[in-house]
Nucleic acid binder design. Structure first.
Lengths: 222, 222
DNA sequence: AAGCGTCTTCAGGTTGGCTTTAGGCGTCGT
DNA sequence: ACGACGCCTAAAGCCAACCTGAAGACGCTT
């Protein structure tokens, strides 16, 4: 269980880190809002403990930014109980739970465990095109009940087409999506991959769902 | 029916012990948290009655420690009624039921009987992937009926994969989960452990459930 | 001190995905 | 009809990614 603790009071941070480490959590500490936001975006955590009063960027903002970036890691907010900031504000910005200072360590532990158990991970959704299912999390697809393994590049191309099923996607767009921005090789490579995809998802099933639109691009349809 | 009563108030402890004994329970009493934990681990009880406010180690901790040690004896927690979150805390740390002080003796008896009837709910929160069971509490797994011992690191990697079975988990993610945050060694070490895991959970069974997705990561599936 | 088990590094060997190439096919315009 | 163009796809080389056995480093127990 990985925890990110964003807390600027050194003493409290150290105590919590040691305590949680003793409970079996792997704890990283950030000492201000900006660092916290950066660490949260760069690493996968199971839960984030976030103080509200922070230098450089306050907790509410960090929380909101994370949610904007579609990061759904559960967040527990620590609020000072001076009355200005309250529960509603924390929850409004996308926090999952809150705790007023001063708080009991045991309560914090219980809340953390509850959050972790509840989990907050929104999985990337799979896309369905007729009886073809494209599964981003598994880097694979299936036609009916048959699993079809794909290489990363093959998948990237298929995904680009599936996200806009029924529409024509130009070779250039596919290049931009599946290849590095600075790629400047032969655009023919897209054709090569389209060919490979047809051999995997169409030919064995007697289908032809991946169509060429001459002069425009490709279209994937049911 | 063996009951462990962990309660530091001498008067209450004596009353409960006599009362329960009269109902046919065999009652042991511990007067602080540490003794209670020790007795609970050393002897088999059918149910444990655990006060929260205890000298030397509080009830939540006792409860959590027991569960960590894979002791699933039903626990009924006695809470002082001043805490708002006491109920949630008690249940979060692994208790099976709770009762606020002051309470009626008849209610306690009824709850106890219910707990005993329900029995020790062994809920190992283990993850199942086909016929492979990953047991977070025990640092081991089993394929069918065969127990497979794992080292801590092996387990950490397998756990990381099992939690997202069917999905591709990148080497980087596995590194972040199973190793210290500040680890910056060769990512090759993940390969080494995947190799070790295969030798333990796949090869002896003629399976290949731990797959390489070249350029993306690894996938564990049934 | 010695033994054991685990973690980590290293290096040689192998695999397989990415990319390029080139010849063939079909379609469109003149 | 004929060439030009766009597209298809098999083949092959390259190289990064991966596998794995071995051995050193480290810590814990005897």
């Amino acid at each position: 269980m990985r925890v990110l603790l964003v807390e600027d009071e050194k003493r409290l941070a150290r105590l919590l880190k040691e305590g949680l480490a003793g409970e079996g959590f792997a704890v990283d500490v950030a000492h201000d809002g900006r660092d916290g936001l950066w660490m949260a975006t760069e690493n996968p955590y199971d839960v984030i403990v976030l103080d509200v009063m922070l230098p450089r960027m306050n907790g509410y903002t960090v929380c909101a930014r994370l949610r904007d970036a579609e990061n759904w890691t559960p967040i527990l907010v620590l609020t000072a109980k001076d009355g200005v900031h309250d529960e509603a504000e924390a929850l409004d910005t996308g926090a999952d739970d809150f705790l007023s200072k001063p708080f009991s360590y045991v309560v914090l532990l219980a809340r953390l465990r509850a959050l972790v158990r509840r989990g907050g991970t929104a999985r990337p959704a799979s896309i369905t095109v007729g009886d073809l299912t494209v599964d981003p999390a598994g880097l694979r697809c299936r036609r009916g009940e048959v699993d079809i393994p794909l290489t990363p590049k093959e998948f990237a191309v298929l995904h680009g087409l599936a996200r806009r099923q029924g529409e024509v996607v130009s070779k250039r767009e596919l290049l931009a999506q599946a290849w590095d921005f600075s790629y400047d090789g032969d655009p023919n490579i897209v054709e090569v991959y389209v060919s490979a995809l047809r051999r995997k998802i169409d030919s064995p099933f007697g289908r032809s769902s991946l169509l060429t639109v001459r002069g425009a691009g490709y279209r994937l349809e049911a």
